[in-house]
Amino acid sequence: MKTMQPKMASALVGALFAMAGLTAHAAGMQPESTVVLIQEADGEGSMVVTNTDAAPSLMYAKIEAVSDDPNPPVVLTPPVARVDPGKKQTVRFMLTNKEPLAVERYARVTFDGIPEQKNDGKNKVTLTVRQDLPIVIRPKALAEDKTPWTHLKWSLNGDTLTVANDSAYVVRMDQRVKLLPGDIEAAMPKSYVVPGSKVEIKLKDGAALKNAQQVQITPFSAYGYALEPYTVQLGNATVETTATN
């Protein structure tokens, strides 16, 4: 059986809506930034979310733990709020840790906007847009490091590429990585590596891997912007890294 292409699927959904007399309507909450940064020294952080819909909506905010950090020390308020069109809602993130943090912590937060339904007799299908952002919590006693990806240790064993993060920093990057020479492409299972964790990636092109000496990544800044590609030697925990133009 052939798999339906996304464009074809979208066209089919639109056609079905038209045949049924339905109006498709997209709505969403727009955060002011692409990441929530919380300083332990402040005890809390915040994010302003704007209702970009043309009607009042209910904003639902929820913190999602990741498997690498299952108990993030943070709660948010309010979890639900009514937001008028074009208006803003501030969501506060409060830390709950009792002891000082030793390493950066990581979680996700989702924002959903559900438009209020009007009983006007028209058939409507509301498509909500979910915003899913990272949360990074910075310890008070940890010095800021603007290039945390330099602490990552990369190694290649057969067809397995391994990256270990022995530092106290969360490292965020594009999931696409490349081995050099040979431009052998690989994909990280996620776009972050938390402190004390190790990620293994199974590779293809086994014969070409024998010549691989470096790995090239595209790190993200603290605010989620992609930076210049970065190249590091494989198989050495103390290698020097160099920026690639």
Rank of each mutant, 00 (worst) to 15 (best):
V83H: 04
P189Q: 02
R172F: 02
D183I: 02
Q214I: 00
L16I: 14
K202S: 06
G182S: 03
M59V: 03
L95I: 08
Q117R: 08
A208Q: 11
T34R: 12
N123H: 10
V136L: 04
T150D: 12
S67I: 13
R172D: 07
K204H: 04
G206L: 04
F111V: 07
V193N: 05
S221W: 02
K2W: 09
P181M: 04
P73T: 06
T90H: 02
A186T: 08
E104D: 08
V103Y: 10
A164M: 10
V103I: 13
E32A: 15
T96L: 09
R105Q: 14
K88S: 11
A81Y: 00
M4T: 15
T150Y: 01
A164S: 14
V215W: 05
D112R: 06
L179Q: 05
T244S: 13
E185N: 09
V35F: 02
E228S: 14
A20Q: 13
M4C: 08
V193G: 06
G86C: 00
E64N: 13
D166F: 01
P31S: 04
L227P: 02
V36I: 11
S33M: 07
T90I: 02
T241C: 11
M188V: 05
T238W: 03
D145A: 10
P134L: 05
I135P: 09
P229H: 02
T50S: 10
P115F: 00
D166A: 10
